[in-house]
Protein backbone atom coordinates (compact mmCIF):
# COMPACT_ATOMS: atom_id res chain seq x y z
CA UNK A 1 0.00 0.00 0.00
CA UNK A 2 1.30 3.42 -0.92
CA UNK A 3 2.09 5.58 2.11
CA UNK A 4 0.16 8.81 2.66
CA UNK A 5 1.79 11.99 1.42
CA UNK A 6 2.08 14.91 3.84
CA UNK A 7 2.65 17.72 1.31
CA UNK A 8 2.01 18.11 -2.40
CA UNK A 9 3.84 20.73 -4.40
CA UNK A 10 6.43 21.41 -7.06
CA UNK A 11 10.20 21.32 -7.19
CA UNK A 12 11.70 23.50 -9.91
CA UNK A 13 15.16 23.62 -11.34
CA UNK A 14 15.25 26.46 -13.79
CA UNK A 15 12.22 26.23 -16.07
CA UNK A 16 11.68 22.55 -15.37
CA UNK A 17 8.75 22.06 -13.00
CA UNK A 18 8.55 18.73 -11.23
CA UNK A 19 5.26 18.02 -9.41
CA UNK A 20 6.06 16.07 -6.25
CA UNK A 21 4.60 14.58 -3.09
CA UNK A 22 6.43 14.41 0.22
CA UNK A 23 6.40 11.47 2.62
CA UNK A 24 7.80 11.00 6.12
CA UNK A 25 11.07 9.10 5.91
CA UNK A 26 11.61 8.60 9.62
CA UNK A 27 9.57 7.74 12.70
CA UNK A 28 10.52 7.63 16.35
CA UNK A 29 10.21 4.20 17.96
CA UNK A 30 10.70 5.48 21.49
CA UNK A 31 8.36 3.76 23.97
CA UNK A 32 5.67 6.27 24.92
CA UNK A 33 3.80 6.22 28.20
CA UNK A 34 0.65 7.92 29.40
CA UNK A 35 0.83 9.80 32.64
CA UNK A 36 -1.37 8.30 35.33
CA UNK A 37 -2.13 9.06 38.96
CA UNK A 38 0.02 6.71 41.08
CA UNK A 39 -2.73 6.19 43.68
CA UNK A 40 -5.60 5.11 41.45
CA UNK A 41 -4.05 4.56 38.00
CA UNK A 42 -6.43 7.12 36.46
CA UNK A 43 -5.29 9.16 33.46
CA UNK A 44 -3.71 12.53 34.13
CA UNK A 45 -5.01 15.40 32.05
CA UNK A 46 -3.61 18.87 31.70
CA UNK A 47 -5.86 21.86 32.25
CA UNK A 48 -5.10 25.46 31.46
CA UNK A 49 -5.22 27.99 34.27
CA UNK A 50 -4.89 31.75 34.21
CA UNK A 51 -1.97 32.48 36.52
CA UNK A 52 -3.52 35.79 37.58
CA UNK A 53 -7.09 34.73 38.26
CA UNK A 54 -6.20 31.16 39.36
CA UNK A 55 -9.17 29.97 37.28
CA UNK A 56 -9.45 27.40 34.53
CA UNK A 57 -9.40 28.85 31.01
CA UNK A 58 -10.99 27.42 27.89
CA UNK A 59 -8.77 26.93 24.85
CA UNK A 60 -10.77 29.44 22.82
CA UNK A 61 -9.74 32.15 25.30
CA UNK A 62 -6.04 31.42 24.85
CA UNK A 63 -3.81 33.57 22.60
CA UNK A 64 -0.14 33.34 21.65
CA UNK A 65 2.16 36.06 22.94
CA UNK A 66 5.82 36.87 22.44
CA UNK A 67 7.54 38.29 25.51
CA UNK A 68 9.37 41.48 24.44
CA UNK A 69 10.39 42.39 27.97
CA UNK A 70 9.63 40.93 31.38
CA UNK A 71 5.87 40.52 31.59
CA UNK A 72 5.15 42.48 28.39
CA UNK A 73 3.76 40.44 25.53
CA UNK A 74 3.02 41.13 21.90
CA UNK A 75 -0.03 39.06 21.03
CA UNK A 76 -0.14 37.63 17.51
CA UNK A 77 -3.27 36.35 15.79
CA UNK A 78 -3.00 33.15 13.77
CA UNK A 79 -3.15 35.09 10.49
CA UNK A 80 -0.39 37.36 11.66
CA UNK A 81 1.92 34.44 12.40
CA UNK A 82 1.06 33.17 8.92
CA UNK A 83 2.29 36.44 7.42
CA UNK A 84 5.83 35.39 8.37
CA UNK A 85 5.58 32.31 6.18
CA UNK A 86 6.25 34.44 3.12
CA UNK A 87 4.79 34.01 -0.33
CA UNK A 88 6.61 30.93 -1.48
CA UNK A 89 3.55 28.71 -1.44
CA UNK A 90 3.98 25.08 -2.35
CA UNK A 91 7.08 25.47 -4.49
CA UNK A 92 10.70 24.54 -3.83
CA UNK A 93 12.98 26.37 -6.25
CA UNK A 94 16.38 24.68 -6.45
CA UNK A 95 18.48 27.74 -7.13
CA UNK A 96 21.93 26.22 -6.85
CA UNK A 97 23.66 22.89 -6.54
CA UNK A 98 26.47 21.85 -4.20
CA UNK A 99 28.56 18.67 -3.90
CA UNK A 100 26.44 16.62 -1.48
CA UNK A 101 29.55 15.34 0.32
CA UNK A 102 30.49 18.91 1.34
CA UNK A 103 27.46 19.32 3.61
CA UNK A 104 28.70 18.53 7.12
CA UNK A 105 26.43 16.10 9.03
CA UNK A 106 25.86 18.80 11.65
CA UNK A 107 23.54 20.64 9.20
CA UNK A 108 21.12 17.78 8.55
CA UNK A 109 17.91 18.10 10.50
CA UNK A 110 15.01 15.98 9.20
CA UNK A 111 14.56 13.92 6.06
CA UNK A 112 11.50 13.41 3.87
CA UNK A 113 11.13 11.18 0.85
CA UNK A 114 10.10 12.90 -2.36
CA UNK A 115 7.73 10.92 -4.60
CA UNK A 116 6.55 11.76 -8.08
CA UNK A 117 3.28 13.53 -8.79
CA UNK A 118 1.98 13.78 -12.34
CA UNK A 119 4.72 14.30 -14.95
CA UNK A 120 6.76 11.36 -13.72
CA UNK A 121 9.31 11.78 -16.53
CA UNK A 122 10.49 15.08 -15.08
CA UNK A 123 10.90 13.43 -11.65
CA UNK A 124 12.95 10.63 -13.15
CA UNK A 125 15.14 13.11 -15.04
CA UNK A 126 15.86 15.19 -11.92
CA UNK A 127 16.67 12.03 -9.97
CA UNK A 128 19.03 10.74 -12.62
CA UNK A 129 20.81 14.10 -13.05
CA UNK A 130 21.30 14.53 -9.28
CA UNK A 131 22.50 10.95 -8.92
CA UNK A 132 25.01 11.27 -11.75
CA UNK A 133 26.35 14.64 -10.65
CA UNK A 134 26.55 13.68 -6.94
CA UNK A 135 25.12 17.08 -6.15
CA UNK A 136 22.35 18.32 -3.91
CA UNK A 137 19.99 21.08 -4.99
CA UNK A 138 19.61 23.84 -2.42
CA UNK A 139 16.30 25.65 -2.01
CA UNK A 140 13.68 26.77 0.45
CA UNK A 141 10.59 24.94 1.53
CA UNK A 142 7.55 26.23 3.41
CA UNK A 143 5.82 23.68 5.61
CA UNK A 144 3.14 24.44 8.21
CA UNK A 145 3.78 28.18 7.75
CA UNK A 146 7.48 27.86 8.47
CA UNK A 147 10.25 28.22 5.94
CA UNK A 148 13.18 25.79 5.88
CA UNK A 149 16.47 25.62 4.02
CA UNK A 150 16.56 22.28 2.21
CA UNK A 151 18.86 20.04 0.22
CA UNK A 152 17.33 17.71 -2.38
CA UNK A 153 19.42 14.74 -3.44
CA UNK A 154 19.17 11.26 -4.91
CA UNK A 155 18.89 8.52 -2.29
CA UNK A 156 18.79 5.07 -3.88
CA UNK A 157 15.81 5.12 -6.28
CA UNK A 158 14.02 8.11 -4.81
CA UNK A 159 14.72 11.76 -4.10
CA UNK A 160 15.24 12.84 -0.51
CA UNK A 161 14.56 16.30 0.88
CA UNK A 162 16.62 17.17 3.97
CA UNK A 163 15.82 20.23 6.06
CA UNK A 164 19.09 21.94 7.03
CA UNK A 165 20.12 24.00 10.04
CA UNK A 166 21.14 27.59 9.35
CA UNK A 167 24.78 28.49 9.91
CA UNK A 168 24.02 30.56 13.01
CA UNK A 169 22.14 27.62 14.57
CA UNK A 170 25.31 25.51 14.52
CA UNK A 171 27.84 25.96 17.34
CA UNK A 172 31.46 26.04 16.19
CA UNK A 173 34.32 24.30 17.99
CA UNK A 174 36.03 27.63 18.63
CA UNK A 175 33.27 28.54 21.08
CA UNK A 176 34.14 25.61 23.37
CA UNK A 177 37.47 26.84 24.76
CA UNK A 178 38.84 23.37 25.41
CA UNK A 179 42.01 23.30 27.52
CA UNK A 180 44.83 22.00 25.32
CA UNK A 181 46.68 20.27 28.19
CA UNK A 182 50.42 20.67 28.73
CA UNK A 183 51.67 17.49 27.09
CA UNK A 184 50.66 16.34 23.62
CA UNK A 185 50.19 12.64 23.03
CA UNK A 186 53.47 10.97 22.01
CA UNK A 187 54.07 9.57 18.53
CA UNK A 188 54.03 6.10 19.93
CA UNK A 189 50.63 6.64 21.54
CA UNK A 190 49.29 8.02 18.27
CA UNK A 191 50.54 5.00 16.35
CA UNK A 192 48.91 2.68 18.84
CA UNK A 193 45.62 4.60 18.59
CA UNK A 194 45.84 4.38 14.78
CA UNK A 195 46.29 0.62 14.97
CA UNK A 196 43.37 0.32 17.32
CA UNK A 197 41.14 2.36 14.95
CA UNK A 198 42.22 0.15 12.05
CA UNK A 199 41.40 -2.96 14.04
CA UNK A 200 37.87 -1.68 14.74
CA UNK A 201 37.27 -0.40 11.18
CA UNK A 202 34.29 -1.85 9.34
CA UNK A 203 31.62 -0.99 6.76
CA UNK A 204 28.67 1.01 8.00
CA UNK A 205 25.81 -1.42 8.60
CA UNK A 206 22.91 0.16 10.51
CA UNK A 207 21.20 -3.21 10.99
CA UNK A 208 23.94 -4.16 13.46
CA UNK A 209 22.73 -1.63 16.00
CA UNK A 210 19.48 -2.36 17.74
CA UNK A 211 17.89 -0.21 20.35
CA UNK A 212 18.53 -2.61 23.22
CA UNK A 213 17.18 -0.11 25.73
CA UNK A 214 13.82 0.03 23.94
CA UNK A 215 13.75 -3.80 24.02
CA UNK A 216 14.57 -3.75 27.74
CA UNK A 217 11.78 -1.25 28.48
CA UNK A 218 9.24 -3.32 26.55
CA UNK A 219 10.43 -6.42 28.38
CA UNK A 220 10.05 -4.62 31.72
CA UNK A 221 6.47 -3.69 30.81
CA UNK A 222 5.67 -7.30 29.94
CA UNK A 223 7.16 -8.61 33.20
CA UNK A 224 5.34 -5.97 35.22
CA UNK A 225 2.14 -6.82 33.32
CA UNK A 226 2.47 -10.39 34.56
CA UNK A 227 2.78 -9.12 38.10
CA UNK A 228 6.51 -9.81 38.51
CA UNK A 229 8.54 -8.01 41.17
CA UNK A 230 11.15 -5.70 39.55
CA UNK A 231 14.70 -5.85 40.93
CA UNK A 232 16.10 -2.33 41.30
CA UNK A 233 19.79 -3.18 40.76
CA UNK A 234 22.60 -0.67 41.14
CA UNK A 235 24.71 0.36 38.17
CA UNK A 236 28.49 0.12 38.09
CA UNK A 237 30.77 2.76 36.64
CA UNK A 238 33.86 1.94 34.57
CA UNK A 239 37.19 2.87 36.13
CA UNK A 240 39.48 5.13 34.19
CA UNK A 241 43.20 5.03 34.72
CA UNK A 242 45.73 7.68 33.84
CA UNK A 243 48.16 5.35 32.09
CA UNK A 244 47.24 5.90 28.43
CA UNK A 245 50.01 3.74 27.02
CA UNK A 246 49.15 0.75 29.20
CA UNK A 247 45.47 1.06 28.28
CA UNK A 248 46.28 1.24 24.55
CA UNK A 249 48.60 -1.75 24.76
CA UNK A 250 46.08 -3.78 26.70
CA UNK A 251 43.36 -2.90 24.14
CA UNK A 252 45.48 -4.08 21.24
CA UNK A 253 46.66 -7.15 23.13
CA UNK A 254 43.12 -8.26 23.85
CA UNK A 255 42.23 -8.54 20.16
Amino acid sequence: MAPRSIWNGTITFGLVNVPIKLYSATESKTVHFHEVHLRDGAQIEYRRFCSKEDKEVEYKDVVKGYEVSEGTYVVLEKDEVKAAAGDRGKVVHLTEFVPAAQIDPVFYEKTYYVGSGEAKDAYRLLHEALRRSGRAGIGRFTFHDREYLVAVRALDDVLALHTLRFHDEVVSGDELEIEPGSRRPSRQELQMADRLIDALQEDFDPSKYEDSYREAVLDLIKRKGKGEEIDLAEQEEPAHGDDLMAALEASLGSR
Binding site: H37, I44, K52, V57, G65, V75, L76, F166
Partner: peptide, 27 residues
Protein backbone atom coordinates in the same frame (compact mmCIF):
# COMPACT_ATOMS: atom_id res chain seq x y z
CA UNK B 1 22.83 23.37 17.77
CA UNK B 2 21.33 26.53 19.17
CA UNK B 3 17.69 27.32 19.12
CA UNK B 4 17.19 30.79 17.62
CA UNK B 5 13.46 30.43 17.03
CA UNK B 6 11.01 32.89 18.51
CA UNK B 7 9.02 31.14 21.19
CA UNK B 8 5.50 32.10 22.10
CA UNK B 9 3.71 31.73 25.41
CA UNK B 10 0.07 30.91 25.89
CA UNK B 11 -1.78 33.85 27.42
CA UNK B 12 -5.26 34.41 28.72
CA UNK B 13 -6.88 36.68 26.14
CA UNK B 14 -8.81 38.68 28.74
CA UNK B 15 -5.91 39.83 30.91
CA UNK B 16 -2.72 38.80 29.02
CA UNK B 17 -1.66 36.71 32.02
CA UNK B 18 0.39 33.58 31.46
CA UNK B 19 -1.43 30.27 31.14
CA UNK B 20 -0.24 27.48 33.45
CA UNK B 21 -0.76 23.82 32.72
CA UNK B 22 -1.88 21.89 35.78
CA UNK B 23 -2.14 18.12 36.14
CA UNK B 24 -5.50 16.69 37.14
CA UNK B 25 -6.54 13.18 38.00
CA UNK B 26 -9.44 12.43 35.65
CA UNK B 27 -11.10 10.18 38.22
Amino acid sequence: ARDLDFHFHELHEKDNARIEQRRFCTK
